[in-house]
Simulated assay, not measured.
Amino acid sequence: MNNSDWSDRRHPCRWESETGDAGFWMPDRTEIVTQFFTRYLFFALAVIYFSTLESVPPVLFSIEQLLMALGVYFAVNTWFFRQALKGVTLQNIRGAMAADLLIVTLCVIHDPNPIPPSALAFLMVLLGNGMRYGMRLFAEVLGGAFLGMAVSFAFRYRMGGFEISAGDVFFGVFWISLALYAYILMGRIEGQRQQLDYRSRFDALTGLLNRHGLLAAADSLFDKANEGNLATVLFADLNQFKMVNDRYGHGVGDRVLAEFAQIFNESVEMGVCGRWGGDEFVAILPMRSDAAMQQIFERIEARIQAWSQSNGLPMGVSLGVSHAPQDGHDLMTLLSVADINLYQKKSQQPTEAKVQPFYRNLADEPETS
C-alpha cells in the first residue's frame, strides 16, 4: 500500500485523488446510470430531429452520414457506459466528455436553423458533466464547450452559407453568460460541499477525523487489507480525564484534548488518526512490529510528560493495539481487541485504580464527552 493511501486524511472516502489537491468526485451507480440515460435521450432526440429534415447545409456530411455519425456515438457511448459500471476512471470521464462535445459540434454545424437549437446541447454537456465531477473537470468541459461553439459557428458561417445576425449575437452572449454563471455558481456550491464534507468527517476541536470519518476511512483501508495488506490499530484513552474537567473546567479539558490530539497525530507519523469520542483516540496504521509500536508508545509518553510538566496540568494515556488480519477484518472488531489490551495494561499500572479487562460496545458510546 502506498503512503498516500494511509495519509489521505482530507477525503477518506468519496474523493478520488490524483496528485496533491487534484482529483474528482466519484459518482455512485445511480448517478452513472442517470448520466448515461441522459446521453441516450440526447441521442434519441438528435436522431428524431435530423430525421425529420429534408436536407442539411452541405458543410461536412449529408443527413445519412450525420445519422451514421450519431450511430457511432451511440456505440462509443455504450462502451463508455459499460466501462463506467466496472469502475469510473479519469480517462473514461474525459473520453465520454470528448465524445459528447464532438457529436454536439457536428450537430450544430449541420443544423439548418439560423439560430440552431441544437447548440443548447452544449449546456447539457457542460452541466451534466461539470456539475458531477468537480471544478477541475468543469473547467475542462467549459473550455471544450467554448471551443466546440467557436468551431461549429465558424464552419456554419464559412461553409454553410449562414450570415451573422442580431439573433446570433444575442444567442451567443446569452449562451456565454449562462455558461459562466453556471461555472461561478458551481464553484460556490463546490466550496460549500467541501465544507460540509469536512465538517461531517472531522472533529471541530482537534482537527482529526471524527468517528464518521474514521469509519469511512476504515471501509476503504480494510477493503485493501483484505487483498493482502496488513494493518495495525492503535487505541488511546486519556487517564482520569473526568477529574481534569471537574477540577479545572471544560476549557482546560478542551485544551488537554487538543494538545493530546496533536501529540498523537505527530507521534504515529504515517496513518489515519481520529477522535473516536470523548477522550478516546484511534490511529489506523500500516502493519507495525511490536518494537515499532513500543517506540511510538515511548514517543507519546515522553511528549505528554514534557507537556504536563511545562504546563502544570495532568495528562496521562493508556494505549492498546490490535492487528489485522489476525485480530479481525473490520475496525469495530479491531477496536474491541485493542480496547481489551488497553484495559489489561491500565489495570497493571500502579498509580491507577485497578480495572479488570472487559468488553465494551464501542459503537454505542457517544462521540463527544
Rank of each mutant, 00 (worst) to 15 (best):
N245I: 07
D111E: 06
R158Y: 10
G191H: 11
V173Q: 04
P357N: 12
I300K: 05
L67T: 03
K224W: 03
N265D: 12
W15H: 10
Q194V: 11
Y248S: 06
D100Q: 13
G191E: 10
A363I: 13
T34F: 09
I164Q: 11
A119P: 01
L319T: 02
Q91D: 08
T105C: 15
L137Q: 05
L319R: 03
V233R: 01
Q91E: 08
F24M: 08
R303E: 07
G277P: 04
P57Y: 01
S318I: 08
D254F: 09
V59I: 15
L230V: 10
Q262N: 12
M1A: 12
N2R: 12
A121L: 08
Q305S: 15
S7H: 13
V141C: 06
M68A: 15
R94I: 02
T30M: 12
P286Y: 06
D330L: 02
G23P: 00
L85T: 08
G172E: 00
Q65F: 09
D8W: 03
A363L: 14
M68Y: 15
Y359A: 15
L137P: 00
F138M: 13
A166T: 00
D219A: 15
V72E: 10
F235G: 01
S62V: 03
L215F: 04
A145G: 07
A44N: 09
T206C: 02
P57V: 01
I103T: 06
T232W: 04
T19S: 15
D223R: 14
E301T: 11
D254H: 09
S177T: 14
L120Y: 15
G134Q: 01
R299M: 01
F37V: 11
F43P: 00
